[in-house]
Write a protein that binds this DNA or RNA. Structure first.
Lengths: 123, 123
DNA sequence: CTGGATCCCGGATGATACTG
DNA sequence: CAGTATCATCCGGGATCCAG
């Protein structure tokens, strides 16, 4: 299996899917859903910095694309659980790996930035 | 190694790194750089739909973060090659996998969207 | 060929208030 | 608890022109 992308239309047709899983909150949200269903209120707390509105919007989009399911339990107070679909699980794990990488290389990136900015400043 | 994220500050500290590799053009650009250096003009053609400005901005960011290197060959006309750093290679491969997934599940997502919108319309 | 600089618009996102 | 509605804002990103 080749890793490098082929030319042309493969990409343009993929843009909309990429825009979904690649947007600001979907990455973190999907990663959070690994390991089982999560309640809305749980995600609200664990997806750092997400606003109520954006969490809702993000979950709707993921649901629309068939990557998560939404289950309402009509108790009082109501309870809603979100869960990855089988198809959604693959990119979620991928994304979690990416986040793990980001965590591990935080220092490297910070140092690289500092160096870049310093050298740019000297000029 | 656990896949699910831990609580709290891991995420907020990772946001800026995620915003980089997760933004609209970095994904495609990094994936394109797998397999060896690429010229600016090559990337311009192969990263579908990217504008001159955004390609430059994206490459600068990736360079600043130490994920790609920029090599100028002062010929006439000038030639500039971009290449993944060893550290940049890991997320690039990860990202390429994600793009492959997006390509493979384009149809699934499209169908899911159609169904979602149809059911929403009925109400 | 590989950019840098500027202008500018629209959509993404946050804040806030309200509801079943 | 789990949203929806509205308003204000901000900045991503395209278009264009210029330059080494």
């Amino acid at each position: 299996m080749r890793q490098q992308l082929a030319d042309g239309d493969r990409i343009c047709g993929v843009r909309d899917v990429l825009d979904r899983i690649g947007d600001k909150w979907s990455l973190l949200t999907m990663a959070r859903l690994i390991g089982g269903p999560q309640r809305y209120s749980d995600l609200r707390r664990t997806v750092e910095g997400v606003s109520q509105r954006m969490l809702t919007v993000t979950l709707r989009s993921l649901e629309r694309d068939g990557l998560v399911t939404r289950t309402v339990t009509p108790t009082s107070p109501p309870r809603v659980d979100y869960e990855l679909t089988p198809v959604g699980e693959t990119p979620a794990v991928e994304v979690a790996t990416l986040i793990g990488w980001a965590e591990a290389h935080r220092g490297y990136v910070a140092a690289a930035r500092e160096r870049f900015d310093r050298e740019a400043g000297e000029r």
